Simulated assay, not measured.
Amino acid sequence: MAPQRVDTANLTPTELNERSKAVTARRIQLQTRLYSLRSQRTLSVLTPAPPVTPPSSPGASQVSTIPDSADAAASLDTKILSYALSRSKAITAHTLSNLYRIAGVTTFSAREATGETLLGLRFEVFSRGKRRFLTPVYVLVDLKPTEKGGTPVFVVARHSAPAFLGVVELAGRYLPPKGKQDLTRFVREVNRRVGRWRRRVDAAERFKQIAVAVGKAETVEVDDEVALLVIKWKSGAEANCRVDERGEVVKVVVKSRKGARNAEAEGQMKGKLAGLAARLQWEHPESL
């Protein structure tokens, strides 16, 4: 049946608005029906249709093999909602993980094989050079009862921090077995040391990249703690730099091939490790 032509010249704005709403509703209804038919077609392609059994007699009832459009549409809606729900949960978990990492320190419960529950401390490690989070540092703390039924005390059971960060030393200072314990200050100090260590590592890696790129030094060696930096030039000169916890080059010894000290170079190299290449007036490559 051909659609009827409606003269809208004499319609009021209110009537035009009502007709517009009706047309929109009809369009949505037709689109829904189209999606339903498409889903039926997809299902019929994937699933072979059951054979049609002819009626036993001309008067027997005919059974249709066409799937119900309402059931197909409901199945499609269920799949869409299930996918949307799974994606929403994944996004929520990822966002929550990012919030925890931004906080820097988070706590969790860790259960031992013996059934004992420990307090877990997770310290995030972020690399500015690599622009991503690295493997966290974990510290597990146990709450041990004291003799004669006193107040339980915190004891560091295990940790994954490098030995040079001094977690055991900090536990002895802020979590003594006898005396007042300060778990908050212990956590803050561990977090501070972890952050400073990672910044020293980033500065040392950056310096090595520049040294190799400009070809000014033959080798650059640094220890895991980034407390000692050794630079060897092609001329045979060598510099031994002592780096403190804050990332400052505090002591420098520069010797030529013959063993003569270079006081001017030693003074020039003192300062922030992150700015050592600039103080040596090494050209900064644009690609780094």
Rank of each mutant, 00 (worst) to 15 (best):
R27Y: 03
R27K: 05
I28S: 05
Q29H: 00
Q29D: 04
Q31W: 12
Q31S: 06
T32F: 08
L34F: 12
L34K: 15
L37E: 05
R38Y: 10
S39I: 05
R41L: 13
T42R: 15
T42N: 14
L43K: 05
L43A: 07
V45H: 15
P50E: 07
P55A: 15
S57L: 06
G59V: 13
Q62Y: 15
V63E: 15
S64C: 11
T65E: 08
I66H: 12
P67G: 04
P67I: 06
P67F: 07
D68K: 06
D68L: 03
S69D: 05
A70L: 15
A70T: 14
D71T: 11
A72C: 10
A73I: 01
S75H: 09
S75A: 14
S75Q: 11
S75N: 07
T78V: 09
K79S: 00
I80E: 02
L81F: 06
L81R: 13
S82P: 08
L85P: 00
S86G: 03
S86M: 15
R87I: 03
R87Y: 07
K89I: 05
A90R: 12
I91R: 09
T92H: 12
H94I: 00
H94G: 00
H94N: 04
H94P: 00
T95P: 00
T95R: 13
L96H: 07
L96C: 00
L96T: 00
L99V: 08
Y100M: 06
Y100K: 14
R101S: 04
A103S: 11
G104Q: 04
G104M: 06
V105R: 11
V105K: 10
T106Q: 04
T106E: 05
T107W: 11
T107D: 05
S109Y: 08
A110H: 14
A110I: 06
R111T: 14
E112T: 13
E112K: 10
E112W: 05
A113Q: 14
A113F: 12
G115E: 12
E116I: 14
E116P: 02
T117G: 01
L118A: 02
L118R: 09
L118C: 07
L119K: 07
F123G: 02
F123K: 05
V125K: 08
V125H: 01
V125Q: 03
V125S: 02
F126E: 09
F126P: 06
F126M: 03
R128K: 09
G129H: 07
K130R: 12
R131C: 09
F133Q: 00
F133G: 01
F133K: 04
L134S: 06
P136S: 09
P136D: 10
Y138P: 01
Y138S: 01
V139G: 03
L140T: 02
D142C: 12
D142G: 11
L143F: 10
L143H: 08
L143I: 07
L143A: 03
P145E: 14
T146H: 03
K148L: 13
K148G: 07
K148R: 15
